[in-house]
Design a protein around this nucleic acid. Structure first.
Lengths: 208, 208
DNA sequence: GTCTATAGTAAGATAGAC
DNA sequence: GTCTATCTTACTATAGAC
């Protein structure tokens, strides 16, 4: 209920008199189909026709909701990133509430949540990992990555003995790379074991 | 002389009676043009016409030498990888000759050479880093990456106290990520400073 | 808001002369 | 081996009915 209201606030249901979100449903179906098709063929190979076919919708409908193929991909990425950031932020908040104060431990809590998200949404993770989005996508992704590094830097600097810039960069990149590896694992236990080992390693590296 | 002979051995000059490698020259020009065009626009956006225009060659000539657009990209990647591997192998060999025996130090020597290569060939490095090659390319790249990790594992295990699998994976990924960062730097001094800091960090992490 | 049908275009690949 | 000209295909995006 409240969730749908929030979504409506972001994406107003335009002029439809009182429809209970039929358009929203179409939009969501389109996004889900796009996720599958893009994940299967990559952005360049994938075509609009396959997306609408899988969604059981029409080309016109897609162009009504999105500007086109590139917009569809971008919307997918934005949603994914938002969810990942929410996961990490929630985990850090929770750790704080539980009395964790050490910056590295807070960072690890966020990283663990991020890696769990990489496994749960491995379809999307693999897609973006594979690269080859629309023109200009790399810039957007890189911007997001820089932002993430900056947030981590802030988190890891809230200390008497702040960590160096290069170490922050390395830690962030290790988590990112671990996310990629997690997303391509074949089964959950392998994925989680890998994630745990990497987190353990980071802990050893960072705690003098 | 000897170099050209070796190239001819790999890519026989077919039926040309005694031409001094005019075809090889065309092939090389085509490859150089492809490098620039792909680097500028990415694989999907780039088109054959731009490549041949820049090379001052013709479409027919391109199709004579390569199977098509995808083959061109793949040839570029193979050449690049071969050069990077040669750089790393030479550096490790040289270090060995100089009396270095510690596996981690040998690994670092190879990594340093690799990072130098990333800077020198940053055009190509950025291209492959950006992703979005032809269908199936990701698999090829991943295979190469696995192979590299395996080689590093062999190198790093030649010791009384071999390093763990996860640590080897992390070290390899850190070098790879450092390569990406090096390749996108704006100037050489920033690039080299970053490379040195990462290598220093790896050394500290690995030497107990 | 959703649909079908179609326009428009771009680009990869080929044929055949030189 | 290299060229020009052309063919063919595939797909994005739009127009307009319902």
């Amino acid at each position: 209920m409240r969730l749908r209201d929030r979504v409506s606030a972001v994406q107003p249901s335009t002029t439809s008199t009182r429809s209970g979100g039929r358009a929203q449903e179409t939009r969501a179906t389109l996004l889900a189909a796009a996720r599958d098709v893009f994940a299967e063929s990559g952005f360049a190979q994938a075509n609009i026709a396959d997306v609408v076919a899988r969604a059981g919708a029409s080309v016109g409908s897609l162009y009504h909701h999105f500007g086109g193929k590139a917009d569809l991909y971008l919307a997918l990425f934005e949603d994914y990133q938002t969810r990942q950031e929410a996961r990490a932020a929630a985990a850090v908040r929770e750790a704080r509430t539980s009395g964790v104060t050490d910056p590295v431990d807070l960072f690890l809590a966020g990283a663990a949540a991020y890696l769990r998200g990489c496994w749960e949404e491995r379809g999307l993770a693999r897609l973006f990992l594979a690269g080859g989005g629309p023109t200009g996508f790399e810039l957007i992704a890189r911007r997001r990555y820089r932002e993430w590094t900056r947030v981590n830097a802030t988190l890891l600097r809230a200390d008497d003995q702040p960590l160096g810039d290069t170490l922050v960069l390395v830690l962030t990149s290790v988590v990112a790379e671990a996310g990629s590896e997690v997303a391509v694992q074949d089964n959950e236990s392998d994925a989680f074991r890998l994630a745990d080992e990497v987190l353990e390693l980071i802990s050893r590296i960072s705690h003098p």
